[in-house]
């Protein structure tokens, strides 16, 4: 690398880093620092160094096992569904047919709605007294009376997953669509000459080409799923019981309900570590050493 190149890179990075450092790296570093303190906002005079006590307390807390299970369940259900459905949608939207432009626009709509509003919409759809879902089920004769779906464990979890799907589908769909449209047509023509069938073309060309996109989507959706808070807060508030109380919900609770900043930071920091581990695992699983989107 030439000296001039290095200078250009540094100058080019300055605008981005001037935002990333104060608003990303510094908060993470500060969270790491606070996680080593006994920091209860209700008793600010007693702030003191606590070593790893917050981490130990979090691990031993009454909610750790349940919230880990809730998070794993939610992520395991939501991430594959988002990846598969957005890929399917992208394949559909890459076809030439009448109305595809309108469909492309329609898919983007949930993106324009704030998360809390999306949560409120889904909560009302499944409302126990006036929800449209109950009305539809009853009019079809599938239920005798309105059911409080959000009071039932698995239905509540599935409603969260559906709401998450609805909110998160647009960006992955857009990414996959961009990926599909960047595939050179010559590859398909060559495969056709070689006698490849549709499935073989999809597997050997489309999926292979989309692998880096899949990595980006998988990482993005996983992180979104792990950190999902708004939908949980609005739709189930962690219930029924604490069946859908994912870790991010307790991070919020520790911070804003219990006002224990030390434990909240420890919990947040743990999730950051898990997220990093997950990203590394994705890179290895998809055998993408470095993302190159150039043709």
């Amino acid at each position: 690398m030439r000296r001039g190149d290095l200078k250009f890179i540094i100058v080019g990075l300055v605008p981005a880093l001037s935002f990333i450092f104060p608003f990303t790296f510094y908060p993470i570093a500060y969270a790491a620092y606070v996680s080593s303190l006994h920091y209860d906002l209700k008793y600010p005079e007693e702030i003191r160094f606590a070593g790893f006590n917050n981490f130990i307390e979090v691990f031993n807390s009454y909610y750790m096992a349940d919230s880990t299970m809730a998070t794993v369940t939610f992520v395991a259900l939501a991430v594959p569904l988002v990846v598969l459905i957005s890929l399917g949608l992208a394949l559909l939207l890459s076809q030439n047919f009448r109305g595809v432009g309108f469909l492309q626009w329609l898919v983007m709509v949930p993106w324009a709605i704030p998360l809390v509003d999306s949560g409120a919409i889904w909560k009302w759809i499944f409302d126990a007294n006036y929800g449209i879902f109950n009305a539809a089920m009853k009019s079809l004769g599938l239920i005798d009376s309105y059911v409080p779906w959000l009071n039932l464990r698995w239905p509540a979890m599935l409603i969260l997953v559906v709401a998450f799907l609805w909110v998160q589908l647009p960006l992955p769909t857009l990414l996959f669509l961009a990926g599909i449209q960047s595939i050179p047509q010559e590859l398909y023509e060559a495969a056709m000459i070689d006698g490849a069938k549709s499935w073989a073309k999809f597997r050997a060309i489309t999926l292979t080409w989309l692998r880096p996109f899949m990595l980006i989507v998988a990482v993005y959706v996983s992180l979104m799923a792990i950190w999902t808070f708004d939908l949980v807060y609005v739709i189930t508030a962690g219930g029924p019981g604490n069946f859908t109380a994912v870790i991010s919900y307790y991070t919020w609770s520790e911070m804003f309900t219990f006002l224990n900043f030390g434990r909240a930071s420890a919990l947040a920091f743990l999730v950051v570590l898990v997220s990093i581990a997950l990203i590394i695992a994705y890179f290895r699983a998809l055998r993408v050493g470095r993302i190159r989107l150039r043709v």
Binding site: D40, Y63, R153, P240, G241, N242, S253, T257, F258
Partner: peptide
Amino acid sequence: SEWWGYWQAGVARPAIHDLILGN
């Protein structure tokens, strides 16, 4: 006191909800 929120919102409420729901 110290456990404001923690015990009531964090511990008691979900447990009582589970009971009420018959879980």
